[in-house]
């Protein structure tokens, strides 16, 4: 029974991880930019939803605002931070440090304007009821899973059936193709950031309702996204999403076997082992070394 309960808990967390990881993987796969500020987009989206909720606006308005805020932030990062650096053939870590700085700035601004400490969106959606003996499930679980599934379906259609989507996938390997379609590499890059960041918004909203928000909330999600992107295999959205889901489930199921304090280490140990023994990831093309 405990196993089933932990599995369900894990799926809820996993859906959040899968969405953010997919966003990160999309951006990284297309632009090769290690978007360390992805967690910041997550934080901003969560607080945007929180403010809309506090103002008494309906949920869908809040969700739209959250998506808009995350998207705009991603696009602004691409335009004003990453692009100037990339012009100078900035190395991988230059981007990393710049994004890290942005993360610090936003985290403290959020603290100043939204108040410090934990803030939650109070809703019955996160309240679990006993559906079977010993099994507690909250409506938010189904919402999280359904949202993730719908978004992945839509994303798959977009990436395979539209010119922009194909160009997005081609950006990293075959920039010529983009020109053939009559699109600009810069435009596609912005698109990648817009879509990738938007994917963080639903995850942030679910987090605001369940475990709550603080200024530094994006940090952990960001680490998980990196881990999932690598475990899933760089360049594979499917892999990243699946790996995100698995990390969420593993973190929860680990409690069946080990003491509670080791749960997080289990995920990262898995990451470490994965890199050592199967560096190409679950779906990745072998590209180690």
């Amino acid at each position: 029974m405990l196993f089933l309960q932990l599995l369900l808990n894990g799926l809820q967390t996993g859906a959040i991880y899968a969405l953010t990881a997919a966003g990160f993987a999309l951006i990284f796969g297309a632009t090769r930019i290690f978007h360390f500020a992805h967690g910041t987009a997550f934080t901003l989206a969560g607080y945007a939803y929180l403010f809309a909720w506090r103002a008494g606006w309906p949920g869908w308005v809040g969700a739209l605002i959250a998506v808009a805020v995350a998207t705009l932030f991603g696009m602004a990062m691409e335009r004003f931070v990453y692009r100037p650096i990339q012009r100078h053939e900035g190395s991988f870590f230059t981007v990393f440090v710049a994004a890290f700085g942005v993360g610090i700035v936003v985290q403290n601004l959020v603290g100043m304007f939204a108040g410090r400490g934990l803030a939650t969106v109070d809703t019955r959606l996160s309240f679990a009821t006993e559906v079977m003996p010993e099994i507690f499930v909250a409506p938010i679980l189904w919402i999280a899973i359904a949202t993730a599934a719908v978004l992945f379906a839509a994303l798959t259609v977009f990436l395979t059936r539209t010119h922009a989507g194909v160009a997005l996938r081609a950006l990293a390997q075959n920039p010529d193709l983009i020109r053939t379609y009559g699109l600009s590499a810069n435009g596609i890059s912005v698109l990648a950031f817009a879509i990738g960041s938007a994917l963080a918004a639903p995850a942030a909203i679910v987090t605001a309702m369940t475990s709550g928000l603080n200024e530094a909330i994006g940090h952990h999600v960001m680490l998980i996204s990196i881990a999932a992107t690598i475990v899933g295999g760089i360049g594979s959205l499917r892999g990243a999403a699946l790996a995100g889901l698995m990390l969420g489930v593993a973190e929860s199921l680990a409690l069946q076997f080990v003491d509670t304090q080791w749960a997080e280490a289990v995920s990262f140990l898995a990451l470490f082992a994965f890199i050592l023994f199967r560096p190409s990831g679950i779906f990745g093309v072998a590209m180690a070394r």
């Binding site: 881990a227 992107t229 890199i275 180690a288």
Partner: peptide
């Protein structure tokens, strides 16, 4: 075993 982003992630782990 690995380089680049893979190694970054390994060191993160």
């Amino acid at each position: 075993r690995v380089r680049g982003e893979y190694f970054v992630a390994a060191s993160l782990g």
